[in-house]
């Protein structure tokens, strides 16, 4: 019942390879990996080690963080190559004999060291038509937990942008002007599935948000620290709605002859 702290890692000194650098004029990540030896304590997460480095070795090491409890989504980085929250990545779950590599999110322009410029995401959100209920008389509103469940799964999103960092459409192909990325697919899904929302965003989802660019590799779902089933529960149902509207053969025919 009670927790036993393993002593196995208590006295361990781990090697951290931490990226330090500044952007060039295009925001490219220019810098080097610096090695720090960090004495670990039981239960430590990567962010504890980064804070130790700040306090003891490198006071100007830049890192973005807030809650240190996996609730705010600020401390996203790439740990041993995997986009992750630093506050949630336990060191005693990692191999003892290998260095721990901490780098900034590759998909976004660098600000400094582990901090990247994620402002693009905030610009994308502004383009989305917000919640639009049929009437504003909240006292008359009724909907049930089953309906709420579907929406609440997406509203768990802490905007860590790890899904955006992971998504190859953004990461490798830089389609920032064509595809909103998984985070905003579930923002859109959440609005579309809200039982009281009456706005029609399907054309927008297809043309502006670029849902067609997602080819369902589910990498975003794999990395989501909130375990939101981004692809299965969000993107695929949205794709189905888009297909029903714009690609259903009968609808297309009716549209063509002016009866749609």
């Amino acid at each position: 019942m009670m927790m036993i702290v393993s002593d196995a890692h208590t006295n361990r000194v781990a090697n951290f390879h931490v990226f330090r650098g500044n952007p060039d004029e295009n925001g490219e990540h220019i810098g080097e990996v610096v090695n720090y030896e960090v004495p670990l304590k039981p239960g430590w997460v990567v962010l504890d080690a980064i804070h130790w480095i700040q306090a003891n070795k490198q006071p100007d090491l830049a890192v973005r963080w807030n809650c240190k409890a996996a609730k705010c989504g600020s401390c996203s980085a790439e740990i041993n190559g995997l986009p992750s929250l630093m506050c949630k990545t336990r060191l005693d779950h990692m191999p003892a004999d290998k260095p721990i590599i901490v780098k900034p999110m590759k998909t976004f322009p660098l600000i400094k060291d582990l901090v990247t410029d994620v402002s693009w995401n905030y610009e994308v959100n502004k383009k989305i038509q917000p919640f639009t209920p049929a009437n504003s008389n909240v006292d008359t509103w009724r909907y049930f937990q089953q309906d709420a469940d579907r929406v609440q799964e997406f509203r768990k999103c802490i905007e860590c942008f790890i899904c955006q960092d992971t998504c190859h459409v953004l990461r490798h192909h830089s389609k920032f002007d064509k595809f909103f990325g998984p985070r905003f697919m579930i923002r859109l899904a959440q609005l579309e599935f809200h039982p009281l929302d009456v706005a029609d965003r399907l054309k927008f989802i297809k043309e502006e948000a670029g849902i067609g660019f997602c080819n369902i590799t589910k990498c975003c779902t794999d990395r989501c620290p909130e375990q939101i089933r981004i692809t299965d529960n969000g993107i695929i149902p949205l794709k189905e709605r888009v297909v029903d509207r714009f690609y259903d053969p009968i609808t297309m025919l009716l549209n063509k002859i002016g009866l749609g």
Binding site: P130, F131, P133, S136, V138, D139, W141, R142, Y143, F144, Q145, D147, A148, V151, Q152, R155, L191, H194
Partner: peptide, 20 residues
Amino acid sequence: VKELELWGAVFDRTPDGRIL
């Protein structure tokens, strides 16, 4: 609180569909 619901907050529900 009701204003938050108007702005899109999704609270847990009572069995009859109101804010729990």
